[in-house]
Each structure stands twice: as C-alpha cells, then as structure tokens.
C-alpha cells in the first residue's frame, strides 16, 4: 500500500453555469474513499461555489451546498479559498456556508508547492 498523497483539487469556476463545481466534488469524494489527503482550493469565480442560500432547484439543478456540507463527513476538512477573490466579489467569509481557510497569494503558492498532485476542474 502506497502512503497517501497530498492531492490538491483546484477550481476557478462559478457553480451552475457549468458542471465544474459538481465534478470537483465528485473527485474529492473519490479521493476520500481512497484515503488520500485531499484539499480543495477555490480561486477567482470558484469562491462563489460556497456562497450560502443557493436554491438551484428552480433551475432543475442539485444543490451543491448540501454536498459541500457533507465533505467533513468524508474527512475533507481542508477547504482553502483565495482571499483576494472573495474581496474581488465584495464578499466576506461570513457569506459562505461552510468553514474555510482564507489564503494570500503567497500561501496559495506554498500550498501548491507542498502538494504531490494538483488536479484542475
């Protein structure tokens, strides 16, 4: 058995306009099943994936918030977002629905440097 890898899943896409947010979560849950050390990094429009009060049933989409809320059940606790991106959208972390860690650009570069594999969605 190989020792677990640090797998970083990165997304810059807003939810619902494409399947990126959901496809990212599917990879995250699979990494967890394989007992890998998985972390999520949301940049640019990706921070909008975590906005609270989503109601996508009105456009026949599944609610990502509920799937995101279940991440901790899969031991996926490392959810990082780009602090600049949140500010760019005029939002604060109190408007997100799950706990996240805000990172500066330098911290993001260190997170990438310390990961074994980075997958973009």
């Amino acid at each position: 058995m190989n020792s677990p890898k640090n797998i970083l899943l990165m997304s810059r896409r807003a939810p619902y306009g494409s399947s990126a947010a959901r496809d990212l979560l599917d990879i995250a849950l699979t990494c967890s099943v394989f007992e890998q050390n998985v972390a999520l990094l949301l940049l640019d429009d990706g921070v909008l994936q975590l906005l609270a009060n989503q109601d996508p049933q009105v456009i026949q989409q599944k609610n990502l918030n509920s799937l995101q809320s279940s991440l901790s059940l899969y031991d996926i606790e490392k959810i990082y977002i780009d602090a600049d991106a949140l500010e760019h959208h005029g939002l604060s972390h109190s408007e997100l629905h799950i706990p996240v860690t805000l990172l500066t650009k330098i911290e993001i570069s260190q997170l990438i440097a310390n990961s074994d594999i980075v997958l973009t969605v």
């Binding site: 990126a20 599917d26 997958l119």
Partner: peptide, 23 residues
C-alpha cells in the same frame, strides 16, 4: 470505469497532467 481509476492513477503515477478547456 469510475473516478476511482483517476485517483488510483494519481496514486501510482509520478506525474499527472490535465488538458482542459473553458467551461
């Protein structure tokens, strides 16, 4: 096959590269 094949490949490979587009 399932996404498990992607994760298994990540575990077993020295390098993983993604080719993607917009959307």
């Amino acid at each position: 096959s399932g996404l498990g094949q992607l994760v298994e490949a990540c575990i077993l490979s020295d390098r993983v590269i993604t080719f993607g587009g917009q959307g």
